[in-house]
Computed example of a mutant assay.
Amino acid sequence: MTHRITPSTVLLLLVPPFLWAGNAVLGRIVSDMVPPITLNFLRWAIAFLILLPLGHSVLSRGSGLWARRKRYALLGLLGVGLYNTLQYMALHTSTPINVTLVGASMPVWMLVVGFLFFGARIGGHQLVGAALSMMGVLVVLSHGQWEQLLSMRFVAGDVFMIVATIVWAFYSWLLTRGGEEGGIRRNWATLLLAQISFGVVWSGGFAAGEWALTDARIDWSWGLAAALIYFAVGPAIVAFRCWGAGVGRVGPTIAGFFNNLTPLFAALMSSAFLGETPHAYHAVAFLFIVGGIVLSSRSRPAS
């Protein structure tokens, strides 16, 4: 597997954090309209329907999906059923700054999971790159005032986000294993639909439990409907497609550093939508994060 970053690869790996930042901002807006687990199910159910005309062949009896059903059931559980469910739950029970900070530990978990479970070696450049990238995230989250970080307290939502981040690390590493998947990789839609087909079942089961055990309700509106379309098309289909392609090119460890651009994009979106003026610390954070990505890409660890 090559670890050389080309301009097209950079573009592939920039799209997901940009769309995921929009997911966080819009997710906060609709948090009072729809329960978090139900939101995740609706998002992926719509994505399933959109992808069905493009990748329906993967559901046929002769498809390699059924021979590899255990693998795709696991990918669907991790990437579709659990990760965003835990993230939406975290946003309901913790502060945005804490959730974003915990999620920014992604490169560290990519390194740890890869080393412990997938036999990947950790290079010195990656360790320094992880530190630089984390510094950039801390600059964004602290608004350049480090004393703000000292006053933070972890709550249940932070635990949800820690688990979500570890889940995503496993998902990303598993994407690099499995070869041609018994002929499933005829196009990107069939590969993604194979995961969503199982993932929507997982998320549907979780949502059913939410409605059975809580006083869940949905406040329908045209705004919520538009938000659901965005969640399904942008952060789900487009972001997952680009993330999978980017991970396939450079590996999950280097790709994980691009995830740290999410809080930076989220800060810029908040500035645009809330009318806040960008500050100098945004530029400082950008330099730290990009520096970490560039430095990490220079290493050649075995994966």
Rank of each mutant, 00 (worst) to 15 (best):
V200A: 07
G223H: 07
R217H: 15
H279A: 15
R298S: 08
G234T: 03
L287V: 15
G244S: 11
V233C: 06
L287E: 08
S221Y: 06
L224S: 02
C242R: 07
N187L: 05
R186Y: 03
I184T: 05
G209W: 00
S197A: 15
G248A: 15
L175K: 03
M269N: 07
V167D: 12
R177Q: 14
T165M: 03
W243D: 02
L175P: 02
Q195H: 03
R241Q: 08
T253N: 08
Q195S: 12
F265E: 09
L287T: 11
S203V: 12
S221Q: 09
S172M: 07
W168Y: 13
I166Q: 11
H282D: 03
F286R: 04
A189W: 01
G209Q: 04
E276L: 11
D219S: 14
A227S: 07
G223D: 08
V290I: 12
T214A: 08
F288S: 07
I293M: 10
D215N: 14
V250Y: 11
V247L: 11
A216N: 04
L175M: 14
V247D: 12
S197C: 12
V201H: 04
F240N: 14
I229F: 00
V155Y: 11
T176P: 00
V238D: 08
G248N: 11
R249N: 12
W243S: 07
W222I: 12
I237R: 05
W220F: 13
H279G: 15
G182F: 12
I237M: 04
E210K: 01
W211S: 03
V155M: 10
A232G: 06
G292F: 01
Y281K: 04
R186H: 04
T277I: 13
G246Y: 11
G256W: 15
L264E: 10
R249I: 05
G223S: 10
A255H: 03
P278F: 02
S297T: 00
I289L: 13
I254E: 00
L228K: 00
M269L: 15
T277A: 13
R241G: 05
T190Q: 14
F206E: 06
V233S: 02
A245I: 09
A232I: 01
L295T: 02
T253Y: 00
T165R: 02
G234D: 06
L261M: 06
L295W: 01
V238Y: 15
D158Q: 08
A212I: 06
V238I: 15
Y230I: 01
G179L: 14
G182R: 14
W188K: 04
A207V: 00
G209V: 09
L264Y: 10
W243F: 10
F265Q: 06
A280F: 13
I184W: 13
A239E: 07
S297M: 00
S297D: 00
G244M: 15
G234I: 02
W173Y: 12
L192W: 00
L193G: 13
W188F: 03
E276H: 10
A283C: 07
T165V: 05
W243I: 00
L268K: 06
G199D: 09
G251F: 06
A245T: 04
W168V: 09
V159L: 12
I196Q: 05
A189L: 03
T176R: 10
A245Y: 10
F286N: 01
L213P: 06
F257H: 15
R298I: 01
F198E: 01
F265T: 05
G183M: 00
E180P: 14
F265W: 12
A189Q: 06
C242K: 03
I237V: 10
S197V: 06
V294G: 01
G179A: 14
